[in-house]
């Protein structure tokens, strides 16, 4: 397993690298944003299964690099963990909207970093398994969803969801562990005559959580940022 660390502060880059290696993940470091872009464009980034990206780089914005990663086929679906010193919701949301899956703020607890990395890589592993990736079933920690029949069970008890709630749930479980911003959720359930706002998303999640009472922690709220379905 190979990871690419894009971070201009060498001390932090090495910190991350050392800890990833302790998890059995080898890591390369790039310190300059332009170098990273060149690498992505040249398709040499294919070998990396995970990207750890600093939000604030000199010369190039982390958001730009994120967008680049999402543009190229070779890196489109690879998980991106954003490391950020900018903690305002607006900065984090812009990073997530640009394509990052998760974020961690500086200074971080390395154990949490490791946990997040593991979570993201688990999803990759699950997706790479053929029967799982084509499956129309989701089964995790008491939540079972049949995407074909549009049925949901919480601890084996069937739950009735509205169309929007179901769509929302499906988007969340599609990439467990990925933080989804309100904007991204709006785009996923927006359709035809339905007019969806950020407030609508909050209301739907609230309703969803209520209906999934027996699984209270399944949907995590990241205040001011968005939501995710936990993967651990």
């Amino acid at each position: 397993m190979n990871a690419l660390i894009i971070e201009d502060e060498l001390s932090i880059a090495n910190l991350i690298k050392v800890n990833l290696e302790a998890e059995g993940i080898s890591a390369d470091i790039i310190q300059h944003g332009n170098e990273a872009i060149d690498l992505i464009q040249s398709q040499k980034s294919q070998k990396y299964s995970l990207f750890i990206l600093d939000r604030m780089l000199p010369a190039v914005d982390g958001v730009e690099i994120c967008k680049f990663l999402r543009m190229y086929k070779s890196t489109q679906d690879k998980p991106i963990l954003m490391v950020t010193a900018l903690t305002s919701p607006a900065d984090i949301i812009s990073g997530l909207d640009a394509g990052a899956d998760d974020y961690i703020t500086k200074p971080f607890d390395i154990n949490i970093l490791k946990a997040r990395v593991r979570s993201l890589l688990r999803r990759v592993n699950e997706e790479s398994q053929p029967e799982q990736s084509n499956s129309k079933l989701f089964n995790h920690k008491g939540l079972r969803v049949d995407l074909e029949q549009c049925k949901v069970w919480a601890n084996e008890e069937e739950i009735n969801l509205t169309v929007s709630e179901f769509k929302l749930l499906c988007t969340l479980i599609e990439k467990p562990g990925k933080v989804l911003t309100r904007k991204q959720l709006v785009e996923s359930i927006q359709g035809g005559t339905v007019h969806v706002t950020d407030r609508t998303i909050d209301t739907h999640v609230f309703g969803l959580r209520k209906k999934l009472q027996s699984l209270p922690t399944i949907i995590e709220t990241i205040r001011g940022i968005g939501y995710r379905v936990l993967n651990d």
């Binding site: 502060e9 001390s11 932090i12 910190l15 991350i16 800890n19 010193a85 500086k106 971080f108 607890d109």
Partner: peptide, 12 residues
């Protein structure tokens, strides 16, 4: 940044 280094390296 330096705080990250301090915390991170000590934990490491």
């Amino acid at each position: 940044t330096p705080l990250t280094s301090i915390k991170g390296y000590v934990q490491t």
